[in-house]
């Protein structure tokens, strides 16, 4: 079985006022797996996600996503691969404030023509997803994005990540802005939809209580080492 994510001997150094190095000797995520990565802030989780999404390139080692070694691709091809095969959800600021919720969802497809091709009517699919995630059609179609509550915004973001059935969903603290009750509800819906779409789910959070429903849990501190030194 092909791995959804495969990192081998990866080292990335960020050059700034302080030097920061992240090394990941080995990380493998199976296709369809739901993996929970436990990481405190500053543990290098954002850097790790950037590497997996092909936004940043490691100085050493190989990052393979859905069978493609990102290091062999040109930057534009990496951007295209991210658009086509990965759906991303952040902790906050997931949506363009000036576009409607529906437009925000459909925007993903304009960068990913293959995902669009998989769908008949893109708007119907967007509404099906938002309905499944517990959002009212009227809200998605007519509300201003800025009027939505944070919980509603996260659901719209999840619909955007899921639309067109990407291979991988990357979620970076997607529930941290939500209250405890909505956290579980949101997570359930997200996992359900990811499963339905046949997507691999990689979620990073500092909150260990959320790990229960995942297939596997890894502590970032165990799979990766970070080094900071002021130069």
């Amino acid at each position: 079985m092909k791995a959804a994510i495969d990192l081998k001997d990866v080292a990335f150094t960020w050059q700034g006022r302080t030097q920061f190095t992240l090394t990941v000797p080995n990380l493998e995520v199976a296709e369809g797996e739901k993996l929970f990565l436990l990481g405190q802030s500053g543990s290098g989780k954002s850097t790790l996600l950037s590497l997996i999404c092909g936004i940043t390139q490691p100085q050493r080692g190989a990052v393979v996503v859905d069978g493609v070694n990102l290091g062999t691709l040109r930057p534009s091809a990496r951007d295209r691969l991210r658009a086509e095969r990965i759906g991303v959800i952040f902790q906050m600021f997931n949506l363009l404030p000036y576009a409607s919720p529906l437009e925000n969802i459909l925007l993903q497809l304009s960068f990913a023509p293959e995902r669009r091709k998989r769908l008949g009517n893109a708007q119907d699919e967007a509404l099906r997803l938002t309905a499944a995630l517990g959002l009212d059609d009227q809200l998605v179609l007519h509300a201003q994005t800025t009027e939505l509550s944070i919980g509603q915004q996260q659901r719209v973001a999840a619909a955007r990540a899921l639309i067109g059935r990407p291979k991988l969903i990357v979620a970076d603290e997607p529930t941290s802005s939500l209250d405890a009750n909505s956290q579980a509800a949101f997570l359930d819906l997200l996992m359900q939809q990811a499963e339905e779409a046949g997507a691999t789910l990689l979620m990073v959070s500092h909150d260990a209580r959320l790990a229960a429903s995942f297939d596997r849990t890894l502590d970032l501190a165990e799979i990766a080492t970070t080094k900071r030194h002021t130069s």
Binding site: I55, P75, D79, R82, F90, F93, N94, F111, R160
Partner: peptide, 16 residues
Amino acid sequence: RREMALLRAIGARPWT
């Protein structure tokens, strides 16, 4: 900057 980072995350190229 957040808006631009978001666009990048969903697949926009820096050129875009």
